[in-house]
Amino acid sequence: MIKMFRCSALLPLGLTLLLTTAACTRTPEAPNAEGTNPVVTDPVDPAPVDPAPADPVEDTESLLSLSGEGLQLVGDQSGSTVTLAFGTEMTVVENALTRLVGEPIESGENEECGAGPQVITQWPNGLVLHAANGEFIGWSARPATDATLTTLSGIGIGSTLGDLEAVYTVDVFESTLGTEFSTGDMSGLLSSAAPDATVTNLWAGTVCNFR
């Protein structure tokens, strides 16, 4: 004889355990075509690739430029700039200019300059350098100076007042020297105060002007 038992009283508890177990159990990934479960991995960013280094640019020569801080040597290909600042040993500046423009054509000491005695040296391109106590203290460009000798902004002897005002903030005034102007650390003289007036003299640092 088969004995039968009533299990209806246990059914709610069994369903509760089954539902609880199902809620806490992670559903396995579906097997792939080969019958194995796929492996899930985090995406990996590709390693950065450094750009190929550019070929270095080699300068064939240095170009001379005027600055309110001294003189600048500019690489003709790279544009890299080296400043010969006021206060640099004069022999360093002289050696650099000799390599660029040749030997100086005139040099002498002037003891009557307002700021004290100066050694004043003129170079073949017309540029005049001023030195005191063995240091470079100033430069000046006069009417005979090569017009291609300019600041990095293109200002030199022969530039107009309009050219000046296009690149600098300029103060123009009359002085005992004539129509004078100043812009930052540079100063100079103009042929007049008209917009088309030209720069006749230009200087920076300590020079020997008699007012």
Rank of each mutant, 00 (worst) to 15 (best):
A52H: 06
T21I: 15
G87L: 00
K3W: 07
G184S: 04
T160W: 11
M1L: 09
M1K: 11
M186E: 08
A194Q: 13
P38W: 00
T20R: 14
G154T: 00
V74E: 03
A193E: 13
T21G: 15
L161F: 14
V44W: 11
Q122I: 08
E34H: 05
E109R: 13
P12Q: 06
W203V: 03
E94K: 09
A33N: 13
T148R: 10
T98P: 09
L161E: 04
L66C: 06
T150L: 08
A144D: 13
R99T: 13
W203E: 08
F173S: 15
E89Y: 05
T151W: 00
T183P: 06
G158A: 03
E174S: 15
W203N: 07
R26T: 10
M1V: 05
N133S: 14
V172S: 09
P124A: 08
A141T: 02
T179D: 14
G134V: 01
S80G: 11
G205N: 06
T183C: 14
L63Q: 12
P31Y: 12
P28R: 15
L149H: 02
G116S: 06
P48N: 00
T36P: 00
C24G: 08
D45A: 12
N32G: 15
P51H: 13
M186G: 05
L189E: 04
G138M: 09
T121R: 03
I120K: 01
P124L: 11
L149E: 11
S80A: 14
E135D: 13
T151P: 01
V170F: 02
A144E: 13
L127K: 01
V128C: 06
P51I: 15
A131N: 01
D146W: 07
T179H: 14
L10Q: 09
T20P: 05
W203Q: 05
P124W: 05
N95W: 09
G75P: 02
L161S: 00
G205P: 03
G35T: 02
L190D: 10
S78H: 07
E29P: 15
S159A: 04
G116R: 00
Q118C: 01
L190Y: 09
L63Y: 13
V82W: 02
F210Y: 10
S8K: 13
V44N: 06
L73R: 01
E29M: 15
T151N: 06
G87C: 01
